[in-house]
Amino acid sequence: MADKFIEDKVTRVAVKKDGQEVKMDFNDLKSGGFIKQRQKDQFTVRLRCPGGRIDTKKLMEISKIADKYSKKSVVHLSFRQSLEILYVDYKDFDNMVRDLEKIGQKVASCGPRVRVPTACGGCEYNPNGLTDTQAMAKMVDEKYFGTPCYHKFKISFSGCPIDCARTKEMDLGFQGVVEPVWDEDTCTGCTICSKACKEDAIKSHPETGKPIYDPLKCIWCGDCIRACPTESWQAKRYGHFVRIGGKHGRHPREANEAAVFIPDGKVPEVIEKTLEWYKMNGKRGERIGATIDRVGIDSYMKFMEPVFKSGEPITTGKAHKWQI
């Protein structure tokens, strides 16, 4: 028995490649960014590109490495925005990882852990963007990437209710929202806001043209604020709509709506507490959505209350329109 344990401690082995001896480090494989292909000895190497953003200089270096190691000279854009180098011989892992390290490029992951976060363009350059999704994705990648879980754990950031980053299908999703507030004195009753609103949440008064706002129909996209010529619609507060327990795959599950208007600064706490709840209540091989189905959303909401109080908790856990 003792021998077996000693053997398990070996992390580096020598293998033969083209008659030459090369080293292989099993630690490289631990994170799981090396995915076996259908072809013998061939693997896909998934790079870590949080938010799908890559510096152009680094991209040029990556392309050189891809060209050097991909037996078919191809890359693939993964569904979670990362570059994957295809057809890599497993005996090349050690050299390839070292080449990637030289340019500061890390390998991503698969398996039961916090994955590389995905994100849309966000408020940095997208006109619809309400939150800095790219900055958030970078932060989450630095702080939480690779955290072991019972199953995969996917986090994404959408900058607005169009939700290109599909927060409804994530284990934990953050979608940008803005609460509009109207100033009667500066409003000229031009009716543009009622036209700009795609949710029928703003109607124009038949005589004055001034807006009649229905907060229960509003999905906090900010179109009224962007369209108003006189700045009479203003942002009262920005934040994140937090969704929990979504997934796609064989058996999709739409996320529960957990809270709205969670400020940027509280996002790390939401992630930490969520992972803590998952750790306490989940079990091996179970996505957090399944844990919620088994244990109940109330347990999660109660646990999250201290941090969700920084915005508005959605106490029913499933309501498009929560009661204020």
Binding site: P127, T188, T191, I192, K195, A196, K198, R226, A227, P229
Partner: peptide, 17 residues
């Protein structure tokens, strides 16, 4: 729905509607 938002984003001012 769209044009007034874009005009504003370009920095111009809508003075009458």
């Amino acid at each position: 729905q769209n044009v007034p938002k874009s005009i504003k984003e370009e920095g111009h001012k809508i003075v009458e509607v």
